[in-house]
């Protein structure tokens, strides 16, 4: 499985590289999310004092970015490869560059650059500083030192690497249209392209996202998810005291749900500019409450002394 021959080869190479580093290789989170950052393995695990190194592929949904399969590089569903290293190791930039080398990007042949990009997610109540990583003028990754997530200061700070897999694959395969990517690395009749796998889905979901999604149902789902999130958060406090939390993860699932439903409503064009802001605020409030709950759980470091 050579990374420059196939999409899946690229993914497998990255997984192997980060596995060799000692990361927990997770599978995609089983919910619809807008980016790999939403996976609880990043959002929640970035909080609290415990060490955490993980890597995973995350299918990411951006309903608004759908183009009915007609745009060569815009998709409403695409893959991110996400790495989270907490605390951020001192050689994290070198680790990243070596991962590029592993997938065939030779730093003596290509022009690799770290260009300022401050990351902020209003829905997650999160921000960090870092870069877009450019390879010969193309953005291939985002690199962020998380400073705050879900309204909670990161202590210690985690480093997050997000590879845009399709772009990277297009680059190493030398392809201009995402649907032309070789997915399985075979030739002739055995060849499966990215288009074979996803083109129809892009067309169908674009129709759904822009024209047919059931707005009434989505509005209800938003409220339900919001309510459930609050309910679970409330019920999760052990003995009713705000000392230990026992249900941060299920509550956070509802926050993810609300966020995705909001993205669908937004794509459907049924949220006005002023309302838009208030929906983002509502999701952020949920995310913050989940972050607060998480740091009162065991994995969130409750009761443990901060690592040195």
């Amino acid at each position: 499985m050579r990374p420059e021959r196939s999409f899946q080869g690229l993914i497998l190479t990255l997984q192997r590289y980060w596995a060799d580093y000692g990361c927990v290789i997770l599978q995609p989170y089983d919910m619809e999310v807008g980016a790999g950052t939403f996976h609880p393995a990043t959002t929640l695990r970035a909080l609290g004092p415990k060490r955490w190194n993980a890597a995973y592929v995350q299918p990411s949904r951006r309903p608004k970015d759908g183009r009915y399969g007609e745009n060569p590089n815009r998709l409403q569903h695409y893959y991110q490869f996400q790495v989270i290293l907490k605390p951020s190791p001192p050689d994290i930039q070198d680790l990243y560059l070596k991962s590029l080398a592993a997938i065939g990007v030779d730093s003596h042949l290509h022009d690799i650059r770290f260009v300022e990009d401050d990351w902020e997610s209003p829905t997650l109540g999160a921000w960090g500083l870092g870069w877009e990583c450019w390879c010969d003028g193309m953005e291939v990754s985002q690199f962020t030192y998380f400073q705050q997530v879900a309204g909670v200061e990161c202590a210690p700070v985690a480093g997050e690497l997000t590879y845009g897999l399709e772009r990277l694959a297009m680059y190493v395969q030398g392809v201009d249209r995402v649907y032309d990517l070789n997915f399985n690395g075979r030739d002739g009749n055995d060849r499966v392209s990215y288009g074979d796998v996803f083109l129809q889905a892009e067309q169908e979901y674009s129709r759904h996202n822009f024209e047919h999604s059931d707005a009434d149902m989505l509005f209800k789902q938003f409220s339900m998810a919001e309510e459930a999130c609050r309910k679970y958060l409330e019920a999760g406090w052990k003995d009713g005291k705000r000392e230990a939390h026992l249900m941060a993860l299920p509550a956070y699932d509802q926050c993810i749900k609300a966020s995705h439903v909001f993205n669908l409503l937004d794509a459907r064009g049924v949220i006005s500019v002023t309302e838009r802001q208030s929906y983002i605020m509502r999701v952020r409030e949920l995310a913050k409450a989940c972050g607060e709950a998480w740091v009162h759980t065991e994995a969130g470091g409750a009761g443990s002394s901060p690592s040195p």
Binding site: P87, P90, L129, Y145, Q147, C154, A155, V157, S307, P308
Partner: peptide
């Protein structure tokens, strides 16, 4: 104009802030 914390030391309050990690 904007600075950040990083690495092991960012676990403790009062960690050094720099524009990006200082080596």
């Amino acid at each position: 104009p904007k600075s950040m914390r990083w690495g092991e030391r960012s676990a403790k309050p009062g960690a050094l802030q720099w524009v990006r990690p200082l080596h």
